[in-house]
């Protein structure tokens, strides 16, 4: 058996007209190495979507309130719209596309959102899924207050949150036991 090296992920370059300085960054995105030229002002959310084609990370407000763009930077959920791509040199980054390979079943967190109907239009869902994934990766089960605190960092306009809370609870039960 040979160990395969993950193939690099190709990035588009800034438009030639871009007036601000370009910088090289190297990072790991969903387990794959990326080296890219980015303009200083490029938001991480736009880098992921427009340069890497990872459109699962959604942009809902661009001022850090709605949480749709939440991704994991070094395993911690952060706002991609409040992070500059240039600040992500040498980080390890995960997006919703990195959770379950195309041919693999959904992760327990993704499955919980499906089974509990914790999603309707699906636009805010990747953000919720990334935050919930981080909760399930903690060493100990987060208490109710921590879960509430984490979920309040996301807006959903469709579900009324009830089924999202159920989904998160199911995912935590599955990870930590009931």
């Amino acid at each position: 058996m040979t160990t395969s090296v993950p193939a690099p992920l190709a990035a588009r370059t800034p438009p030639l007209a871009e007036p601000s300085a370009w910088h090289g960054i190297s990072l790991i995105v969903n387990g794959r190495p990326v080296t890219a030229q980015v303009e200083a002002r490029l938001l991480l959310s736009d880098f992921l979507r427009d340069r890497l084609g990872l459109t699962g990370t959604h942009v809902g407000c661009e001022h850090g309130v709605c949480g749709a763009c939440t991704v994991l930077v070094n395993d911690e959920p952060v706002r991609a719209c409040l992070t500059l791509a240039v600040q992500c040199d040498e980080v390890e980054l995960r997006t919703v596309e990195g959770l379950a390979p195309a041919d693999a079943p959904l992760t327990p967190v993704q499955r919980a959102f499906h089974e509990c109907h914790g999603m309707q239009c699906g636009f805010c869902t990747p953000g919720f899924v990334m935050t919930t994934t981080a909760l399930t990766e903690q060493d100990e089960r987060p208490d109710e207050e921590q879960v509430a605190d984490a979920l309040s960092g996301h807006l959903c306009r469709c579900t009324g949150y009830r089924n999202i809370r159920r989904a998160v609870c199911q995912a935590l039960d599955e990870r930590f036991g009931e």
Partner: peptide, 10 residues
């Protein structure tokens, strides 16, 4: 609908 949306393929 869900599987596709949950994988970021919306």
């Amino acid at each position: 609908e869900d599987d596709r949306l949950l994988r970021g393929n919306g």
